[in-house]
Simulated scan of single mutants.
Amino acid sequence: MSIPNEALQKLVQEIETQAIAAQQQINIVRSQISAKQREIRMLQLTSNEVSTLPPDTNVYEGVGKMFVYSPITEVDKRLSSETTELKSDVENLGKKLQYLETTHKNSREHIDQIFKSGGRA
């Protein structure tokens, strides 16, 4: 049993569109992971610097165009909570990346299978 040329062409086109969309999403997710990992590294470096300061040091955080005094303990808490949140985001993006890579691989395999079978179902 063979599939008509038009239907085969439409099927291949749909699978190719899905593969292209998955590849674009993979690139987006990879850049998001990279950006979040950079943010995590910056937060860790900031936390390390803050932890080396004496406890009575005045610490100021930027808020818009001004700086506001914040106790070191609050700054450290905020840095650690942001780091935890970003790590969770990176983990979720990793799962999404794995799903997209599988989708892309499957799409490519389906296209190869169609071409190898010569359009027979």
Rank of each mutant, 00 (worst) to 15 (best):
I20E: 14
S2Q: 13
T52H: 05
N58K: 10
A35K: 11
Q13A: 15
G94H: 05
N92E: 08
Q23R: 13
K77C: 00
Q18N: 14
I3Y: 06
I3S: 05
K65E: 08
G62P: 00
E61R: 08
M66N: 09
K105M: 08
Q9D: 12
E49H: 07
E61H: 02
Q25S: 15
V63C: 02
N106M: 10
M1K: 09
I40A: 03
S88F: 02
Q13T: 15
E16W: 09
L79W: 07
L86D: 06
Y69A: 08
D76C: 03
E14L: 13
K116G: 02
P71M: 01
Y69F: 10
S117L: 14
E91M: 07
R108E: 12
V50M: 07
K10W: 09
G94M: 05
Q98E: 14
A35N: 12
V90H: 07
I20D: 12
E39V: 06
D112G: 03
N106L: 13
Q37R: 13
Q13R: 13
N106S: 10
I114D: 03
D76K: 12
Q24Y: 09
R120D: 01
T57R: 11
T17N: 14
T57F: 04
V75S: 04
D112W: 01
V59S: 00
L53D: 02
D112Y: 05
S80D: 07
N58S: 06
L45E: 11
G62N: 09
Q25N: 15
K87Y: 06
